[in-house]
């Protein structure tokens, strides 16, 4: 039986309760979910309901279980963070709002790339445009990218490829508070450039602080500059080690030595 889109959409509830059986329907729904922002957010809400139901079912575990688990933990290696070469906007954004968002991401990427390629002062859209005029190659590359992307929707890989810099990876990820961080990662040199767009404004006395969250330690990667027109100018972070994630937290000015709040972004850095 072929399922209509509407039928798929109503499966959000069953999916969130793990009530879809393995097989075609689950596969089709997963595919649908990756393209349907409203479905993904509905599933998220339903999972929270399920979590409340799990808490409501709270039961005292058998004695001795804690010791057994802790013993197992002591001899079990942890897995490294999942390596993602691109962010997952597809999971959270539907097809329609994708294109304008993508253009924004490309513009942002243009900014960070411009910096990476030596346009050190190109940190506003105007300056980027000027840089574009000055550098037709970059502009042409971007135009090609934009055309290609609207078809391929594999923005980061395509961008990196077309810009002819195989060691540079473009990553982007939405924060849990809204807005998006765009990162150009130079894995070979273990450095990155990050800029953000659309982060919520902070009350006075608060700053956004970047972190390299590693398997062993967390180091500060500096503060985000104040946004202008919703966009923060690029920040360079160096000394990335394997397993690091780029984290972003809200901290009291002028920043802290270690994060004191939950990261609103934790972007794995494939180096």
């Amino acid at each position: 039986m072929r399922l209509l889109r509407q039928d798929l959409h109503t499966l959000t509830g069953a999916y969130a309760l793990d009530a879809l059986e393995e097989g075609g329907e689950l596969t089709r729904f997963n595919r649908h979910l990756s393209r349907c922002q409203s479905c993904a957010s509905e599933v998220r809400g339903f999972r929270e309901v399920a979590t409340a139901m799990a808490f409501a079912a709270t039961t005292e575990p058998p004695p001795g279980m804690r010791d057994q688990v802790m013993a197992a933990v002591a001899r079990t290696r942890q897995l490294p963070p999942e390596i993602r070469t691109h962010a997952r906007p597809r999971r959270t954004r539907s097809a329609a709002p994708w294109i304008p968002w993508l253009s924004g991401a490309i513009a942002m990427a243009g900014i960070v790339i411009a910096v990476l390629f030596g346009f050190a002062n190109a940190h506003t859209q105007d300056e980027l445009n000027r840089a574009r005029e000055q550098n037709q190659a970059l502009a042409a590359a971007q135009a090609r990218v934009e055309a290609e992307l609207s078809q391929a929707r594999a923005h980061d890989q395509a961008l990196a490829k077309i810009l002819g810099a195989p060691h540079v990876t473009l990553l982007s990820q939405a924060t849990t508070k809204g807005g998006v961080a765009v990162v150009v990662l130079d894995a070979a040199k273990r450095q990155l450039v990050v800029a953000t767009s659309g982060l919520p404004a902070l009350p006075p006395g608060k700053v956004y602080q970047l972190w390299l969250i590693g398997p062993v330690k967390i180091v500060s990667a500096g503060l985000l500059p104040e946004a202008q027109g919703g966009v923060t100018s690029p920040v360079v972070a160096t000394g990335i080690v394997k397993g690091d994630k780029l984290g972003l937290t809200v901290e009291p000015a002028p920043g802290t030595k270690q994060p004191t709040t939950t990261p609103i972004l934790a972007l794995p850095l494939p180096v």
Partner: peptide
């Protein structure tokens, strides 16, 4: 300051 969790207040 750390209102990053979208978790429901339903459980805690």
């Amino acid at each position: 300051d750390s209102d990053a969790s979208r978790f429901t207040p339903a459980t805690a």
